[in-house]
């Protein structure tokens, strides 16, 4: 028995489980950033003076790098477009595939069927749309990494000039907000990277080497060291027992089978599209937060 509505939408709510889940998660994220924004408002209204982001430190401002942040804004917007394109390429491919399958089921015109299947067979469409998807998703990840590099440069510049969160409340809220946003970007990169590649195959291929070659060699070396250093045989045996235990319990198999990555496109294409849509929703939200952070931290005048 399967859990219902993981793929198709429930008629009375009009959404599938994942979409409702991700929107609920985003609702809680709104409240998380809401708490921080209200902290900003409070600190700012309560402060006797407040720094202006774009003014250099020597002139009494916060000395934030506005051109770099503008660049980052463009990058995040662009990554939003690419991730939505990644989703769209899957959705379009899937719809075409279905249309063709639908055509095939109607044995009306033999000639037409032959033309259609010659031009585009479903397998080919599927593979092509996956390639497109990987292109756009790769671009998204590239953009997010660029964003992080720019951010790291900004942080490093601040630290090397003796500016830390404790220097002024402006920096306190600046580092907290951008830091938390940066963590969200990193989370997004992990999720998107998970969807980018066929992890199950990759891991099964390499995991075998790690599991049957590298780990045993390391363990044997460890045992040899333990015996050599006179820690006793009991201690030396324990890692081997642990390894056998792991082997028997088949944790690895479970682990590998549980993370298909983009291989889900082959097994459950509709569900995979849903997942990409959810990942996209999260990513757009991260973009949206930045759209508000940018003017609030970098552009607003001081007082």
């Amino acid at each position: 028995m399967q859990i219902p509505y993981t793929v198709e939408s429930r008629p009375d709510t009009g959404v599938y489980n994942g979409k409702m889940g991700i929107w609920l998660f985003l609702a809680s994220e709104v409240m998380l950033f809401g708490g921080l924004f209200s902290t900003y408002i409070l600190l700012r209204t309560g402060a006797v003076s407040w720094l202006e982001g774009s003014v250099p430190v020597e002139q009494g401002g916060a000395g934030l790098n506005v051109p770099l942040a503008t660049f980052n804004t463009f990058i995040l917007i662009a990554s939003s477009v690419t991730i939505v394109m990644a989703w769209a390429s899957l959705a379009i491919g899937r719809a075409r595939e279905k249309e063709i399958a639908h055509l095939e089921l109607e044995p009306k015109d033999i000639q037409e069927r032959i033309t259609v299947s010659a031009l585009s067979n479903p397998q080919k469409i599927r593979a092509e749309s996956l390639k497109k998807f990987q292109f756009y998703m790769g671009l998204t990840i590239l953009f997010s990494l660029l964003f992080l590099v720019a951010k790291a440069y900004e942080y490093n510049y601040k630290f090397s000039h003796g500016i830390y969160p404790k220097t002024h409340n402006f920096y306190a809220i600046y580092f907290t907000l951008t830091g938390l946003h940066g963590l969200h970007i990193i989370g997004g990169v992990l999720v998107n990277g998970y969807f980018l590649l066929p992890w199950k195959t990759l891991l099964t291929r390499f995991w075998v080497i790690i599991y049957y070659l590298i780990i045993p060699v390391v363990l044997i070396a460890l045992c040899a060291f333990l015996i050599y250093s006179g820690s006793g045989v009991i201690f030396a045996i324990s890692p081997i027992i642990l390894y056998i235990f792991l082997l028997v319990s088949g944790l690895v198999k479970t682990f590998v089978s549980a993370i298909p990555g983009c291989q889900m496109w082959e097994t459950e294409p509709d569900r995979f599209i849903n997942r990409i849509e959810c990942a996209g929703l999260y990513w757009h939200f991260v973009d949206l937060v930045w759209i508000f952070l940018f003017p609030v931290l970098y552009l607003l005048p001081g007082s």
Binding site: S9, T13, G14, V15, K19, M20, W23, L24, A27, V30, M31, G34, G35, F37, S38, T39, I41, L42, T45
Partner: peptide, 22 residues
């Protein structure tokens, strides 16, 4: 769909209450 709008409406209200803290 409507269900998502309802959820967002609820969140918006709570968000406004939270900012009211300040």
């Amino acid at each position: 769909k409507k269900s998502i709008y309802q959820l967002l409406g609820l969140t918006a209200v709570c968000f406004l209450i939270l900012v009211f803290i300040a």
